[in-house]
């Protein structure tokens, strides 16, 4: 899997963008669950606020390029007249092109806020996020969100929803319709083109939302607990379908979840966050073969070890009491 992913990365990025940033890469995909987060300087490192605990020397081998760089981002919300809530504290994270990265953490750890900052929907209190070297100042079609709440346009049919983005991009009606119909078929909703969102189940709505976002060809998919509102069975099916779709074109995905299973099953890399203030606790590379098949993976001891180890780390931090 590693070779494949790396090969893919180098195809997508003909040359490393900045040599100095490459030097700071974290990689070492040797053993599962080697806690690692590099504190070295350079844009492409994953740095947690408590990264010193995890610093280890890394050597550069992987020429994949960074698509999203989050640099010392903090977010403070005013909860009441006198209280400030620190949702995110000094987050630095680099996401490589073509990677499936999950942000995993308990509710209230600011993981969705981090995603909204990358989406440009929320401006960070301090720090900056960059997309392909450009500072993110607002939403744009290069970053396509998929929300837990689906956020479909209820006055549009399934087809109308999916066509909305391409039409906005100035694609001709007939062409946009043909593309959209193909996407609707890809997400398994052929025959439902003329249904309104309220006529669909939760799982179907999320399929439409995914197709609607894929329709305008964002370079990065920003998925905010997309399967959080679905029942277990539907959730499993959508995870499988998402993986199948993703394995076709390997778009960069930033995926927020609180489910350890989901994060391990889907991701190349899991960013574990801790709560109040939201910080990166650890970044874990998930070295499992692709294409991943659920029935194979659930029996795979490596998968099981990732899940158990990550769960244990969350338990430990809970027992340790309030995080620093």
């Amino acid at each position: 899997m590693k070779a494949r992913q790396n090969g893919r990365g180098s195809n997508d990025a003909p040359h490393g963008r900045e040599s100095d940033s490459l030097s700071g890469r974290l990689l070492a995909k040797l053993m599962p669950l080697n806690p690692r987060a590099s504190g070295t300087e350079g844009g492409m490192t994953v740095v947690s606020a408590r990264s010193s605990e995890w610093v280890r020397p890394v050597t550069q081998q992987d020429p994949a390029s960074a698509i999203i760089e989050i640099d010392r981002v903090s977010q403070v919300f005013k909860t009441s007249a006198r209280k400030n809530h620190v949702a995110l504290s000094d987050i630095s994270l680099t996401i490589e092109e073509g990677a499936f990265v999950s942000i995993l953490g308990p509710s209230g750890c600011g993981k969705s806020t981090l995603l909204y900052i990358v989406g440009g929907f929320v401006s960070p209190t301090s720090g900056a996020a960059k997309m392909k070297g450009q500072a993110i100042t607002g939403p744009g079609p290069d970053r396509g969100p998929v929300f837990q709440e689906f956020a479909l346009f209820p006055w549009k049919t399934v087809l109308g929803n999916v066509m909305y983005g391409p039409r906005q991009q100035g694609i001709r009606g007939t062409e946009a319709e043909a593309q959209s119909r193909a996407l609707i078929e890809m997400v398994g909703l052929k025959g439902y083109e003329n249904f309104y969102p309220k006529e669909l189940s939760g799982g179907m709505k999320q399929r439409v939302a995914l197709a609607r976002t894929l329709a305008y060809h964002p370079e990065v998919l920003l998925m905010d607990e997309p399967f959080g509102a679905l029942d277990a069975h539907t959730r499993t099916r959508l995870q499988n379908d998402l993986l199948n779709i993703w394995e076709r074109d390997r778009k960069t995905v930033l995926f927020v979840t609180h489910s350890v299973d989901e994060a391990v099953f889907l991701s190349d890399k899991v960013v574990m966050m801790s709560k109040s203030p939201g910080r990166i606790r650890q970044v874990i590379d998930i070295d499992l073969p692709r294409p991943r098949r659920r029935n194979e993976l659930l029996l795979d001891p490596r998968y099981q070890k990732y899940v158990v180890d990550i769960e244990r780390m969350f338990d430990e931090s809970d027992e340790a009491g309030a995080p620093a």
């Binding site: 989406g119 929907f121 939403p139 079609p141 956020a151």
Partner: peptide, 14 residues
């Protein structure tokens, strides 16, 4: 109106 609906539109370039 759901904020996320507006965000979806903003991401499409509205």
């Amino acid at each position: 109106v759901e904020e996320k609906m507006l965000w979806s539109g903003a991401a499409m370039g509205l």
